[in-house]
Amino acid sequence: MEQNSPILYILLAILVTNLIRVLPMMLIKGPIRNTFLRSFLYYVPYVTLAVMTFPAIIETTLTPLAGVIALVVGLIAAWYGLGLFPVALICCIIVYLIDTLLPML
């Protein structure tokens, strides 16, 4: 009955996704005083990124070993203060080498 065009779906998705982003920003005016809330929001970014990194980094590579080694080397490189781009590049090279070399062994 209803003509579900991809364009309508996509316009709706764009609207909803951006409303989610905008609402808290527009509702929260000024600094939050509550210590728990402040602390919660302080930890949120690190926790989210950590949860998204592991175990996904192992699941996206062709061989899990490549992901494990990229993770360990990436952690060490980041610990010693390498920036976003170098760490990302190192991880890519490691995964490419292991994923292409391992099947040859």
């Binding site: 062709l62 203060g81 991880c91």
Partner: peptide
């Protein structure tokens, strides 16, 4: 697929570079 797989790890490498220095 080996190139797609390698590129997809760039994101995670970047995440590590964001979260590890503050942890130190």
């Amino acid at each position: 697929t080996s190139i797609v797989s390698a590129l997809s790890v760039a994101l995670y490498g970047m995440f590590l570079a964001i979260i590890v220095p503050p942890a130190r």
